[in-house]
């Protein structure tokens, strides 16, 4: 069996004084798959993503990325793993306001290994932002900032892209540009996991996982209705598209 890009095994996350943000989730995401994680607010989507990127740790269970159990990594090891394997795209973009777009992209290179301006410019060109390289984030529109954020996420050539509401702050025209970038990344064979409320983006993905109260409520492959249910009985079904 091919090694999965992501494997969740009985993963729970409980915050002090709160209900469980994630409750015993198990799932497997093969390499190169484009998955949309959806669900209402408070369903555990962001927690799911934070456990994937190693910024947070599960209360119980195991998260494996590309075969590495990231729940067992020390913070410094998690940082190294993250910069080698994961590209992060944020809803709020989180571009450093006092660095230019190019420098923001080079920042990820700097934390990874060494800066390469030519490569950073190429990455900006690939998302249609080459002409804005020397601008500060405050001089960009939301869509441009998101594309710069995506360029930063891609510059170290990560195998997995994790995106948290990448179109949440964008208008329709910019949304379409971002969709196109994701399509291109998927065609390039990258594993993409997108947390989103956006139904269009959810439908564009290969597979849609709907969370509710920290559990997988729906796990659907778009187009053919294939479902892998792992919520309560941990047994996959191939029938209705609902667990």
């Amino acid at each position: 069996m091919e090694e999965a890009a992501v494997t969740f095994t009985e993963v729970s996350k409980e915050y002090p004084g709160e209900v469980k943000a994630l409750d015993g989730i198990s799932l497997r995401i093969p390499r190169g798959e484009w998955v949309a994680v959806m669900g209402p607010s408070g369903s555990g989507k962001t927690t799911f993503l934070n456990l994937l990127d190693g910024l947070d740790r599960p209360t119980s269970g195991q998260v494996r990325l590309s075969g590495t159990n990231i729940t067992g990594l020390a913070p410094a090891e998690a940082a190294v793993f993250r910069r080698e394997n994961i590209g992060l795209v944020f809803q709020q973009f989180y571009l450093i306001p006092y660095l230019t777009v190019l420098e923001n992209v080079m920042l990820a290179q700097y934390f990874h290994s060494m800066v390469d301006e030519r490569q950073a410019r190429e990455m900006l060109d690939s998302v249609g932002m080459g002409h804005r390289a020397s601008h500060l984030p405050s001089q960009l529109s939301g869509g441009e900032q998101q594309r710069a954020c995506i360029a930063r996420a891609l510059v170290n050539d990560p195998g997995i892209i994790l995106a948290d509401e990448p179109t949440g702050n964008l208008d329709e025209a910019n949304e379409e540009k971002v969709f196109e970038i994701f399509r291109e990344l998927h065609r390039g064979g990258r594993t993409i996991i997108v947390v989103t409320h956006d139904r269009v983006l959810g439908n564009l993905a290969q597979r849609r996982i709907v969370l509710n109260h920290g559990r997988i409520a729906e796990n659907t492959y778009n187009g053919n209705g294939t479902v892998e249910c792992t919520e309560s009985d941990r047994q996959p079904t191939l029938s209705s598209g609902k667990c």
Partner: peptide, 16 residues
């Protein structure tokens, strides 16, 4: 804090 958190998210070690 957000900026420093971003640095960590991008793979910067705490030492850095």
């Amino acid at each position: 804090q957000q900026e420093l958190a971003l640095f960590q998210a991008l793979g910067a070690k705490r030492r850095l």
